[in-house]
C-alpha cells in the first residue's frame, strides 16, 4: 500500500495551531503571578485599641459572623431579647450599627474591603446606618 499519509499545507496548519493554542491560553499566562491577594482586614478605630475583643474568637467570627448577625436580628425583633452573652460570659447589645460598628468604626476599611474581595454585598446598609457616614 502506498504511503500517502501526507499533510497538506503543513506549515500553515502548524502555525495556525500554534496561534490558536497561544490565544486560548492567553488569559492564564497573562495573569500569571497576578492573582489578587486576599486583603487582611485592617483593625482600625476602637477595635484596634489594646484589650479589645470581638464578640467571639477571631476564627469563629471570620467563619460565622453572618450567622451571628442573622440570629441577632431574629432574637431582637421577634423574641424581644437584646442582650447577647458570649461564650466567656461577656455581654453585648445585639445591634449591627450600635455594637459591631461601634468597634469596627471603619466599615469601609473593614467589612467592605473583605466583602468586595469575596464579592458579597449585604443589603443591610439600605436600612442600617453606618454612624460614621451620618456624623
Amino acid at each position: 500500500m502506498p504511503n500517502n499519509k501526507k499533510m497538506y499545507d503543513k506549515g500553515k496548519v502548524i502555525a495556525g495551531l500554534c496561534i490558536f493554542v497561544v490565544m486560548i491560553t492567553f488569559p492564564f499566562w497573562y495573569n500569571l503571578g497576578k492573582a489578587a491577594p486576599a486583603p487582611e482586614p485592617k483593625l482600625i478605630g476602637k477595635a484596634a485599641e489594646a484589650g479589645q475583643q470581638c464578640v467571639e474568637s477571631k476564627e469563629y467570627m471570620k467563619a460565622e459572623h453572618m450567622q451571628i448577625l442573622n440570629d441577632w436580628r431574629e432574637t431582637v425583633v421577634r423574641d424581644a431579647k437584646r442582650i447577647y452573652v458570649n461564650s466567656s460570659g461577656k455581654k453585648f447589645e445585639m445591634s449591627l450599627s450600635n455594637t459591631c460598628l461601634d468597634c469596627h468604626t471603619e466599615k469601609a476599611e473593614f467589612c467592605d474591603k473583605c466583602h468586595n474581595y469575596a464579592s458579597v454585598s449585604p443589603y443591610c446598609w439600605d436600612c442600617h446606618v453606618d454612624p460614621k457616614e451620618e456624623m
Binding site: 467571639e56 431579647k81 437584646r82 447577647y84 458570649n86 461564650s87 466567656s88 460570659g89 445585639m94
Partner: peptide
C-alpha cells in the same frame, strides 16, 4: 469546657 452563648432581655425592660 466552653459555655454556650446565650441571649437575654435587658434588665430594665
Amino acid at each position: 469546657e466552653a459555655a454556650k452563648p446565650t441571649v437575654m432581655k435587658g434588665e430594665n425592660i
